[in-house]
Simulated assay, not measured.
Amino acid sequence: MPTLDVRDIPPVDRHDTIHDEFAAMEPGETLTIVNDHEPKPLFYEMAAEVEAFDEEGYSVTEAAPDEYRAEFPKRE
């Protein structure tokens, strides 16, 4: 399961980086994103634009005030 910590990536580059990483995954894999805030805008963007994104399998947990872990599964 790939993990991408985007906290050190400039905000302007985060979504493109995430989309590239997600596209490179195999069907059935899940991309874990570590972020400094809950990635709600990214969730809505993925749900609207990425057919392979399994929005029903999405989950997010707050590990610390500045650490959110979001699971973005790719459909099989």
Rank of each mutant, 00 (worst) to 15 (best):
I18V: 12
M25W: 10
P10L: 12
A47Q: 03
P11V: 15
V34D: 03
A47G: 04
R14E: 12
I33V: 09
P11R: 10
E29M: 05
L31A: 05
D16N: 15
P73T: 04
E51S: 04
E76T: 14
F43R: 05
T17H: 03
E26H: 06
A63E: 15
M25N: 08
V6D: 09
A64W: 02
N35A: 01
G28A: 12
L4W: 02
E51Y: 02
I33E: 01
E71D: 13
E38I: 11
D36P: 09
V12W: 14
T61K: 07
N35W: 08
A47S: 07
F53A: 01
D8P: 05
D5H: 14
I18E: 07
G28S: 14
P65N: 00
E55D: 11
R14C: 13
V60Y: 10
H15W: 15
E26T: 10
T32Q: 06
E67H: 12
A70C: 03
K40L: 11
P27F: 09
E67W: 08
D16T: 13
V6G: 06
D54L: 02
I9D: 08
F43P: 08
M46R: 09
G28T: 11
D66E: 06
D54R: 04
A63G: 14
D20K: 13
D54P: 04
A48I: 04
V6A: 09
V12M: 15
T3Y: 11
E71A: 15
Y68R: 04
Y68C: 06
T17V: 08
P27W: 06
V50N: 00
T17G: 05
A52S: 12
A48T: 02
L31S: 00
P27Q: 10
V34A: 06
A24D: 11
Y44M: 07
